[in-house]
Design a protein around this nucleic acid. Structure first.
Lengths: 110, 110
DNA sequence: TCCATATATGATTATATCTAAATATTGTCA
DNA sequence: TGACAATATTTAGATATAATCATATATGGA
């Protein structure tokens, strides 16, 4: 039971573990968006973008809706952005720490 | 430049995208812990656990320290738990929505 | 120094994922 | 109905990842 939850969690993280999919989500920060806008934004093959959209959809991170010929995607739960923001913060923190260390090392070498 | 950040972000999510690694992090919620305690907790081969620890370490999610024969691991930034908690919440939300839908469908079928 | 213990690393195999190209599906309009 | 546009799905080859087994390294003690 507990193990099932971990598998689902891992699935969500896995869906987020690709630069193109993160880029798609950035595009969706401002709200729902047509695939025809997403493709030029992320700059990839149509089939490849579609593939990654399907992965996000299967992980229940986004949902899609048809409007005539177009398909619009939107984020199911905006809290997903909180996740990305936290990771972003942590990365910036780590980077600035590394920078400090480099600076100290540089001084010591003088 | 922007693309580099997305790659690093994806790397962090990727490190979290495995049930055993999430389980290791659960074990580390209470603080630093010896590998010898982690192995029985997650219930896997020693070398396999060690591999997964290395993946978490390479992603700067955990760090290790030797104490005699033992190696102790701890989470670098406890905010990582916030990530897991948010995903957990979202999953629970989704599941309860699905449950509601199933209930409605069941009623309609009567 | 030699041995036992704790952990890490490397090699191998099976499996999953990526990209890109081709093909299929669906909706619109003439 | 037929042709076209937007998107999805399938497929194949290349690449990456996971689990396992065998081996290596480091430490503390006899």
């Amino acid at each position: 039971m507990e193990k099932d939850i971990l598998e689902i969690e891992a699935g969500v993280f896995n869906a987020l573990a690709h630069p193109m999919r993160l880029m798609i989500l950035e595009k969706l920060r401002d709200g729902a968006c047509c695939v025809c806008k997403i493709i030029p934004y992320v700059g990839g093959e149509q089939s490849n973008v579609s593939h990654h959209l399907a992965i996000l959809r299967n992980a229940s991170i986004v949902r899609s809706e048809k409007h005539g010929l177009e398909v619009w995607y939107e984020v199911v739960n905006p809290r997903i952005f909180k996740l990305i923001d936290i990771v972003d913060d942590c990365i910036v923190e780590n980077l600035s720490k590394s920078k400090d260390i480099l600076r100290i090392l540089a001084k010591e070498r003088k």
